[in-house]
């Protein structure tokens, strides 16, 4: 049954990816008949990077969300809520606007460094296995700090257009990214997914508690470093290209754990598939919605994700009251 669920998630994902490549903005088949070169350009230079980014960024958010939640033993931990995405944005902004390194690789390196710093700060503030409230407060503090520092960096930037330039990017968007940019985000995402996949059984054993996991020979420090490094690389590289996209890292693992009987490690693969499907669907919605203007995709994910976040908080309050 679990395999069937994962299979249907993968099929849904393929369908969404196909729609994302072929559907929006006019009939690609008709264009191809009239002007094959134009159709190829649209497909390869516009649709492909966008679809690739949605697929891989969503997958990284889902998988790293599941991994960070497994590590903290807390369903409310996720890259955006713990301030990791904010840290990545800060790192990328500082690299680009203060250090003037505007190459995609420099940008990605800044994002990875920022995400790593934010994620490293979290256990220092909240403790290695934090209560929900402490974890959320630490995340709020890190996000606020990263947000303020990002604004400061943009204000101090030599270019007077820095704020304007950065706005669309900071809101989280998949529009108009080049194939090389998508390649960099994709490389980070794939590296992160491979590294996280290697931790599946160690994270599953954490369901037995940290003591039992260690008695089984798991080196928790190594697991933590692996998850933090992978999350920083994946989220950092993706944020540096697309900006911070919220709530997918929170919502996808919640759905995935229901599919895998709440195994924290085994939930990573379905969480990656669901995260990819959610971001693809949100991006399709942005492109197909008859609003007459383009919304940043981060707005859609937040509109869907915030209620889930509220529901999780209410649920954990209700459980604590028992």
């Amino acid at each position: 049954m679990k395999r069937a669920a994962i299979g249907s998630a993968a099929a849904l994902l393929a369908l969404l990816a196909g729609l994302s490549l072929l559907l929006p903005g006019g009939d690609l088949v008709a264009i191809a008949r009239a002007n094959p070169d134009l159709a190829a350009t649209i497909l390869i230079e516009l649709r492909l990077p966008r679809t690739m980014l949605a697929l891989l960024y969503g997958a990284v958010l889902g998988a790293s969300g599941a991994a960070v939640q497994a590590l903290f033993g807390n369903p409310l931990a996720s890259p955006d809520i713990t301030g990791t995405s904010g840290g990545a944005a800060l790192g990328a902004v500082v690299t680009a606007y203060l250090f003037g390194i505007a190459t995609p690789i420099g940008f990605a390196a800044g994002g990875i460094a920022g995400a790593g710093a934010a994620l490293g700060l979290l256990p220092l503030l909240a403790g290695a296995r934090a209560e929900t409230a402490t974890l959320l407060l630490a995340g709020v503090a890190i996000s606020a700090l990263a947000g303020a520092a990002t604004a400061l960096a943009l204000a101090l930037a030599p270019s007077p257009f820095a704020f304007y330039d950065a706005f669309d990017w900071l809101m989280g968007s998949l529009v108009d990214r080049s194939l090389p940019q998508a390649g960099i985000a994709g490389a980070g995402a794939v590296a992160a997914l491979v590294m996280l996949g290697a931790q599946t059984s160690a994270l599953d054993r954490l369901a037995l508690g940290e003591e039992v996991a260690q008695s089984l020979g798991d080196d928790l420090r190594r697991t933590r470093i692996a998850v933090v490094t992978a999350t920083a690389i994946g989220v950092g590289a993706c944020v540096s290209v697309c900006g911070a996209i919220g709530f997918i890292g929170l919502v996808a693992p919640v759905i995935a754990r229901r599919m895998t009987g709440h195994h924290p490690g085994r939930a990573m693969l379905p969480a990656a598939l669901i995260g990819a499907a959610l971001l693809l669907a949100a991006d399709l919605l942005v492109r197909l919605a008859p609003l007459g203007r383009t919304l940043p995709v981060g707005v859609i994910t937040a509109l869907v994700g915030a209620p889930v976040f509220v529901w999780l908080i209410v649920k954990s309050r209700w459980q604590a009251a028992l």
Binding site: G73, N74, A207, G209, L216, D218
Partner: peptide, 26 residues
């Protein structure tokens, strides 16, 4: 870790479990 459960079993004093697995799965 794969072989270790057959050599050593450990039962911790804390009965807290972070994830709501089913009894059989745990």
């Amino acid at each position: 870790p794969r072989v270790r459960p057959r050599l050593l079993g450990y039962v911790p004093a804390s009965r807290e479990l972070a994830w709501p697995l089913r009894v059989h799965a745990l």
